[in-house]
Write a protein that binds this DNA or RNA. Structure first.
Lengths: 309, 309
DNA sequence: ATATTTGCATAGACAATATCTATAACATGA
DNA sequence: TCATGTTATAGATATTGTCTATGCAAATAT
């Protein structure tokens, strides 16, 4: 068995067609057929049912393919790691980031970062925390950017920064501009929230002790998909919402007048970079970390973080 | 790069000597040297410092070796998996088992199990829960046998059985033979416990609400390394201890008279088989599971399990 | 200081194997 | 039955892995 043979069966699995798979592997169909046959002989196992059209992996073949992809994935990691050890950042990296962070954090560093590493193909995906964790385990993502602490798990993480939360309240809610807001004050107002699944929703519910919104001032509950939607809701319909520090950059001058600080201890969230413990591209992780921290509009203070529900 | 080259550098890393490594790889020193040189050229990276004696991996080489071992480990898994898909169980499997389970569970099935799979080299290690989890992650163990539920983690697990806990009390502690014991009664007695690190210690402390033993009847605290020691302590010095169901098999007729049941709901522990989610030798896991359950001296009732501290 | 030993590298021959071209075999549908 | 699409096979060729023999450098012994 060799790595090339594994690559061939994966190509056949991908294209379900020997001729196409051979083309994509830059060899003739004869070569690909022979090599696969050879592998099948070595394993004493038929990997593909060639009677069917398009060809399909046998049940045993499916299992072998899963493991084959795993092995080749690790070799890809090896090559990427080696290049990084020599200061050359190339290949592909898949990053997951939570939606309450993505629109504010990514623009800060991503252009510069990708310019610094022109050979690196960066694939970014906006996902909620649970999805990021799942994809990291499935090796479909290499890196996650999300709020910590997470419930105990076996992922490795590096703290990047903590950002404070702020109140964004419509004028009619009458929060004096020079006064700090206490989380408990919010009970009396319409608080617009993100939909379920966003970790920030739970964080806000938690530190505001807002268990059930409808029992309070809210006549309407609307679960928004993004913070931008929340801001618009406040602007057009009154009430208030909570924004993380990084979101403030994008507010207009008029909108900034709606921002109020919490009274200390200021609620805040910790943002970390997470990855599978064995992920070998350590240099890349460090470069990403450095780049993010360098481009923050505030100090990446490692403050105390409030508990998460 | 190919798998053979990875095997060669691992051999050199293991023996720190090209000639020995070549012998162990069943090739000449020339072949091994050339192949390693070739790999180094492909990676454009020196993997070993040949000036030093014995040879040592370069810092970059160390990283490569870690990943190389990972890749070859996954190929070993592939071959093992393939054999199992064909009903042939061979190769090696490393199993970790907690000390409060090992002496009672292993004898029940291990002889029969290894006879059923004569080509399988079974390596069993007695470790506490935390060590098993760590070794599973490091891929140094493939399978763990321990008490669940575990704190949330990313390991896969299959429940095997639940076993009840019993009180083993010296005659002078005066527990009537026909009466059930309430966990709270134990406060008034000397309870002998396992040393820290054993999950059963915490389970017992938990369901007996024994926070601090010394504040109660205990003049002596002695943290034992095994249940056998605890039994001996009770026999020689009085007091009592807690035993899991499987431990009862090894008691003498006289000792069995010291056993008392708890009043329902009977404290019990759940025993599971845990492994890394991607572990490909699923057949082996199933065979092990079947074998263990088949040889239990009681029904593997999937009862409710009490909370663990 | 010189010889000897130890340890890895290199050259050239040879063997194994991966790949190619050409063609056969097989199934499917017209 | 023939044409077409798809995979398998045969034989030639290129590539790669391995061997034997030897070189070279450093450490050790005489």
């Amino acid at each position: 068995m060799n790595l090339q043979q594994l690559a061939y069966i994966i190509a056949v699995d991908d294209y379900r067609h020997f001729v196409t798979a051979a083309e994509k592997s830059f060899v003739t169909q004869a070569t690909l057929s022979m090599m696969i046959k050879k592998l099948e002989e070595e394993l004493e196992l038929t990997l593909f049912d060639r009677q069917q059209h398009p060809v399909v992996p046998t049940p045993a073949g499916k299992e072998v393919l899963i493991q084959a992809r795993r092995i080749l994935g690790e070799t890809t990691n090896l090559f990427a790691m080696v290049k990084e050890l020599k200061g050359e950042f190339s290949g592909e990296v898949r990053i997951g980031i939570i939606p309450t962070l993505a629109p504010y954090l990514l623009p800060l560093f991503i252009a510069q970062f990708s310019k610094t590493f022109p050979l690196l193909k960066i694939h970014i995906q906006e996902l909620v925390t649970a999805e990021i964790i799942q994809q990291l385990h499935a090796q479909k993502l290499a890196i996650g950017l999300l709020a910590t602490p997470l419930p105990p798990n076996d992922l490795a993480h590096e703290r990047l920064f903590t950002e404070r939360f702020f109140v964004y309240a419509a004028k009619q809610e009458k929060f004096p501009a020079n006064k700090f807001v206490a989380p408990k004050q919010l009970h009396a107002h319409q608080v617009w929230l993100l939909e379920e699944g966003h970790c920030m929703r739970n964080q806000v519910l938690n530190f505001c002790s807002l268990k059930s919104l409808t029992t309070h001032a809210s006549q309407v509950t609307y679960d928004a998909g993004s913070l931008e939607t929340l801001i618009n809701m406040v602007d057009k319909n009154g009430g208030l919402t909570i924004l993380p520090e990084l979101a403030l950059q994008h507010l207009t001058g008029a909108q900034l007048k709606n921002i109020r600080s919490f009274i200390p201890p200021t609620p805040q969230r910790e943002i970390s970079l997470v990855y599978m413990p064995h992920y070998p591209r350590r240099q890349l992780l460090q470069e990403l970390k450095k780049s993010i921290i360098r481009h923050l509009p505030f100090e990446p203070v490692k403050g105390r973080v409030i508990a998460i529900s």
